[in-house]
Amino acid sequence: MFNWLERMAKWLVYDVLRMPPEDHLAKALDFFIYDSIKILLLLFTVVVIMGVINSYFPIDKVKNYLSRKKLYGAEFLMASLFGVVTPFCSCSSVPLFIGFVRGGIPLGVTFAFLVTSPLVNEVAIGLFVGLFGLRTTLLYVVSGVLLGTISGLILQKLKLEKHLTPWVKEVLANAQMEQNRFVAEKQTLKQRLPIIWQEALKILKGVLPYVIIGIAIGGLMHGYIPSGFFEKYMAKDNLFAVPIATLLSVPMYSNASGILPVVQVLVDKGIPLGTAIAFMMGVVGLSLPEAMLLKKVMTMKLIGIFFGVVMLCIMVSGYLFNMIL
């Protein structure tokens, strides 16, 4: 699919710039040109596709659906799936949380949504397809959805309502299956597309510098680190690799889009994929700024439990991947 791009990058580096084929810098440059164009193309495609899907599942519709339907346990999975198609901005997490609670949606179901929404988002999927290919992306998406579902189920079982802040408890007490009058916008896809297109461009512009820097660093590492370099230090049988990777990942949220290209090179050079996926899930899905925002609705203890459960699930999936891959 991208042969033409590979040829173009090689042509640029070796024919136009006349760099010697065995030079490290030439290899790094070749990799950089090919990778950045490929990834940006794929990223844009995925963001547009997700934008189209999302425009048919606006958040109010999702909320109404979840609070109206009796799903006998499947609501955790549904919430998690809705989380995939809903773009997530950590600053929306509080209003979203309150909206769900108000709609009478159980806390665990709300958590399932809150976990998956940032974890499996359009930018992460786009970068994953570009960096790791379809198979690994699918693996990431499926495990992300399951992770949200399972975390939600666990958090529901823990009966955490008492750890909400007082004003949220009040909201909870007054929760009804309220339905805000929601009128779906009757628009054809043709009318929606320009807005989706513009949004996609905005998203791309926002992450572009991080992605380019990430790919540049990755490109340099690709040229200079010998393959198999990490196998010595981060072998699959190193039991501590997954927990350490998970713990390290949480503070790195702000530049997730820059970190993913670097991780790809690390995997290429021998870091086991399960460890890498655990790391990336932490980077993409858990963020300290989000935790700080949630302080308005949850006690620190609840935030701790929430993050703890999710991290535990991430670690488990990291180990699982290392075992089966």
């Binding site: 509080v94 979203l96 805000n180």
Partner: peptide, 13 residues
Amino acid sequence: DILEIMQYNVMIT
């Protein structure tokens, strides 16, 4: 203010 925001019933900012 989040309380005031919630009076408008928005879930996404």
